[in-house]
């Protein structure tokens, strides 16, 4: 049984005050196995964030079904979903979603606090990950006092600190320089090797080339999938670039 089974999901946004409906996802199907590292690519507005939100059960699809370990997502009660997000899911949001009233440290503790952990445990868990992400020195600062890249790394730390089964990362390298991106991608690779499943949305070919599979979204559909198989990093990079070129070309034809 696959970890996540997505079958023909559709998402139509209906604006509250009338206006045109937006079909963010038309028909998306794929399955995700435990321990996979999936990258999702696609143009801005292709529906990537929408898809992640549905995977995290933050949003409901307007059609199709999502099964988590064989269970229909819509059938899971709200309280259980909350504990799923709390205990088994780490989400790096595109806009970080850090709380301005907390220091970075307290922001990172948030899921641990919700789990009811002791402060000493939390400290012990934070130290290595903050070191790896290079934010150990700024933990006492507030989000409005640090740069975008630093915020992004804090958001990553918050998603990873609970050691979740599933990590959803929405452009986690978007605000990072190449050195920090490399460090983060290495970290994600290690985490994945340790058995955690990762779904990462990215615009960066380089970031996507770290994944074991790349899924291309276009017009709310899965346009193409690339499996890494036994390809090297460079070969993967070239294949992704080609696919993206084809994707852009296809649009011109349409």
């Amino acid at each position: 049984m696959a970890f996540l089974e997505i079958e023909h999901i559709e998402k139509v946004y209906t604006p509250r005050l009338g206006g045109a409906k937006v079909r963010a996802l038309a028909d998306v199907s794929f399955t995700l196995e435990q321990g996979e590292f999936l990258a999702i690519m696609g143009e801005s507005g292709a529906g990537k964030t929408t898809l992640l939100n549905i995977l995290a059960a933050l949003d409901k699809p307007t059609g199709g079904s999502v099964r988590l370990c064989g269970r229909e997502m819509t059938a899971i009660p709200e309280g259980e979903l909350a504990s799923f997000r709390r205990d088994r899911l780490g989400f790096v949001f595109q806009d970080f979603n850090l709380l301005d009233t907390f220091t970075l440290e307290d922001n990172i503790y948030l899921p641990l606090v919700l789990q009811g952990r002791k402060i000493n445990d939390m400290r012990r868990m934070l130290r290595p990950i903050a070191q790896r992400l290079g934010i150990a020195e700024i933990l006492k600062k507030y989000p409005y006092e640090v740069s975008g890249g630093q915020k992004q790394r804090a958001a990553v730390a918050r998603a990873l600190i609970t050691g979740p089964q599933l990590i959803l990362a929405d452009e986690p390298t978007g605000a990072l320089d190449s050195k920090a991106s490399d460090a983060l991608l290495r970290l994600l690779g290690e985490v994945n090797e340790a058995g955690q499943t990762i779904v990462m949305v990215t615009h960066s070919v380089k970031a996507a080339s770290h994944a074991s599979r790349v899924l291309f979204l276009r017009d709310g559909r899965v346009y193409h999938q690339l499996y890494r198989g036994s390809l090297t990093g460079e070969q993967m990079f070239a294949r992704i670039s080609d696919t993206l070129t084809a994707l852009a070309g296809g649009e011109r034809d349409a």
Binding site: A82, S83, R85, R86, L98, P111, L114, R158
Partner: peptide
């Protein structure tokens, strides 16, 4: 945000 992180 808290709910997104797992608050019920």
């Amino acid at each position: 945000i808290m709910q997104k992180v797992g608050m019920s």
